[in-house]
Amino acid sequence: MRLLVLLALLGLLALAQGLTFPRSTLYVEGNGKRYPLKVEVADTPERQAQGLMFRKSLGEDEGMVFLFPTPTAGGFWMKNTLIPLSIAFFNREGIVLRILDMAPCRADPCPVYYPGVVYQGALEVNQGWFQRRGLKEGARVGGEALRLWPR
């Protein structure tokens, strides 16, 4: 719980400082098709803490990719996130391990969404994006954004 409080404080601090995100592209492959996305990259603890907080909308083929330097099993929460999201957790090879839907949360207590797997990246998009394309666990994430993976 202390970690979540720290991340929330980092997120609010980052927001107050006008934190910006690198922009890039990636794709999700599955069912023999490739689906491109424009993404913002959350590659630092400050960017990861802010995420999509306070955003009022997200384009249909837009998202945010979270890239972690080492494998993690941590959860995501939706504190101050106004948009319903779907999140795909993937490994360093880009293989999607779990997809979850997450609901907006404006007031504590906000639920924490744990994937139940060890992952190194996560992709947030509008809720239902994966389902509308028939994408499931085992799909693959790739593209330019992954070149920004912290080492």
Rank of each mutant, 00 (worst) to 15 (best):
K79L: 14
K79F: 12
K79R: 15
N80I: 12
N80H: 15
T81A: 03
T81D: 02
L82W: 08
L82C: 10
L82I: 11
L82A: 09
P84V: 05
P84N: 07
L85F: 03
L85E: 01
S86W: 03
S86F: 04
I87W: 00
I87Y: 01
A88S: 10
A88F: 04
F89Q: 00
F90T: 02
N91R: 02
N91L: 04
R92C: 13
R92D: 14
R92V: 15
E93P: 00
E93S: 11
E93L: 07
E93G: 07
E93M: 10
G94A: 10
G94T: 05
G94Y: 07
G94D: 05
G94C: 04
V96K: 00
V96N: 02
V96W: 00
V96G: 01
L97P: 08
I99C: 08
I99H: 06
I99Y: 05
L100K: 01
D101T: 11
M102K: 04
A103V: 14
A103Q: 15
P104L: 11
P104Q: 07
C105I: 09
C105Y: 07
R106N: 13
R106Q: 14
A107L: 15
A107K: 15
D108S: 15
D108A: 15
C110G: 06
C110K: 07
C110E: 08
P111H: 06
P111W: 03
P111K: 05
P111V: 04
V112E: 03
V112G: 00
Y113P: 05
Y113S: 08
Y113C: 06
Y114R: 12
Y114F: 14
Y114V: 10
P115K: 03
P115R: 00
G116V: 04
V117S: 09
V117C: 08
V118I: 14
Y119S: 06
